[in-house]
Design a protein around this nucleic acid. Structure first.
Length: 435
DNA sequence: TGGGGTCCT
DNA sequence: AGGACCC
């Protein structure tokens, strides 16, 4: 039996630089070198910025109206968020990372943890990653590596922040003097896992920096705070106590919800929205080979307004575990009619699929002739769904589905600055012209 | 800023 | 179930 001592652990965090803005640049090179901002759903505010936009001191969360004049003058470029594009490019990046380690945890759309334990030269691997990913995908990345996830986060921060590092920062030991120096200046609430509230509470006890946290008594931390805070302190000490989750369990719930561009009371509008979300949720469900046993439909008004409020969500068990879009849409719409009330301006609607179990053939009834009929029916349904999913995968999501939504419905998102779905929609793939 | 998640209590 | 945290 081989024994690998803990202090040989080495975790790398690969982080895409300004991911959404970089994605927009991949297919629109005119944006290279320009300040680029990506907007939230409904074009509300800035949620991602290129380096040039950051340099203009345009902060995260800046409302669109404050920068619209700059956009019109051509000083900055804006894009509505295009998650089909970002998801696709993310998958390409992750695919390349898989070549560098057998243990890759897709932590978020633009970040992954890699297990580099036992590899000869983490620096060399990081260098190759930082070189290869942009060459193959057009997305620049930086890498931080250290003995624990929390320290890898710290390293990744430095990799980005300090220009001389060229996007790479490796700490072999938690006792690296440079690392200790940095931890000494790192404010407590900037540590991964310590948010605003915990930060405030820790400060009340005199703990203000990352270094102070890691030197605090761990049992005291566990008693006065929580197990996670204690674990964060251990991680800062270089003890790798957060596992690398490279094979996450399939979802037990799938939720799809969106706020509308304009509030609406129309039941027709809401039914359309619910149908749309139920359909998207079912696509995700089938992709993970699951069956839902219950659904939940929710609607709510805009709580930021001084007007009559109504917020309701109701769950309903399905008669049989199902992944059938038509059936689930029907149930979801029936439920919507139960909770919808006249006189409210609804701002958001959603569908959640609950109690998801792995797919299995339908349970059989008591009588044989019924069995055969039901089996045939189920078979046909599955074929239909399969065909739908394949077409939507190939032609572009929402290319084909149940029912039609009106192009300009209130419940739809506002996406005035949307870029083409370069990678997921045949009508919008880029055209290369050559003379 | 808002639509997803996770984990812990 | 709700809180806290994450991206």
């Amino acid at each position: 039996m081989s024994f690998i001592p803990c202090d040989t652990s080495m975790i790398a965090l690969v982080d895409c630089n300004d991911f959404y803005a970089s994605c927009e640049r991949v297919f629109d090179p005119r944006l290279i070198g320009r300040p680029v901002g990506v907007l939230s759903n409904n074009d509300g505010c800035i949620i991602a910025r290129s380096a040039e936009l950051k340099a203009m001191n345009i902060e995260m969360g800046t409302p669109l109206f404050q920068i619209q004049a700059l956009e019109r003058k051509g000083c900055i470029a804006l894009r509505s968020s295009n998650y089909a594009l970002y998801g696709d490019l993310s998958a390409r990046v992750m695919q390349i990372l898989d070549e560098f380690s057998p243990g890759v945890e897709r932590y978020s759309i633009d970040e992954a943890f890699l297990d580099l334990a036992g590899m000869q030269s983490p620096e060399e691997i990081c260098r190759q990653i930082v070189h290869k990913v942009p060459v193959y995908t057009g997305i620049p990345v930086s890498v931080g590596a250290a003995p624990s996830k929390t320290l890898a986060k710290v390293a990744s921060h430095l990799a980005k922040k300090q220009a001389g590092r060229k996007g790479i920062c490796v700490f072999h030991s938690a006792n690296d003097p440079e690392l200790i120096n940095w931890l000494n200046t790192l404010a407590i609430e900037h540590i991964w896992g310590i948010g605003k509230r915990l930060g405030r509470k820790l400060r009340q006890h005199g703990i203000e920096t990352a270094l102070q946290l890691r030197e605090a008594d761990h049992n005291w931390l566990k008693r006065h705070f929580s197990v996670p805070v204690k674990r964060t302190a251990m991680e800062l000490n270089g003890t790798n106590c957060l596992t690398l989750d490279d094979t996450p369990d399939p979802r037990q719930n799938i939720m799809c919800s969106r706020s509308f561009q304009k509030a609406t009371n129309s039941l027709t509008d809401l039914k359309e929205a619910i149908r749309f979300h139920a359909q998207t949720a079912c696509q995700k469900l089938r992709k993970q080979n699951g069956l839902a046993q219950a659904i939940l439909v929710s609607v709510r008004t805009n709580s930021h307004r001084f007007e009559p409020q109504h917020k309701e969500a109701r769950a309903w068990a399905l008669p049989v575990a199902s992944d059938d879009s038509a059936l689930i849409i029907r149930y979801a719409q029936e439920q919507l009619e139960q909770i919808w009330q006249p006189g409210f301006r609804y701002r958001k609607a959603g569908v959640m699929l609950l109690d998801i179990i792995p797919w299995r053939p339908m349970q059989l009834g008591l009588f044989e002739h019924q069995q055969k009929e039901k089996k045939d029916q189920e078979h046909k349904r599955r074929n239909l769904m399969h065909t739908l999913d394949k077409l939507n995968d190939r032609i572009g999501r929402d290319a084909i589905g149940f029912g039609l939504s009106r192009e300009q419905a209130d419940w739809k998102m506002k996406m005035a600055y949307r870029s083409p779905r370069y990678t997921t929609c045949w009508n919008e793939i880029p055209v290369v012209k050559a003379n």
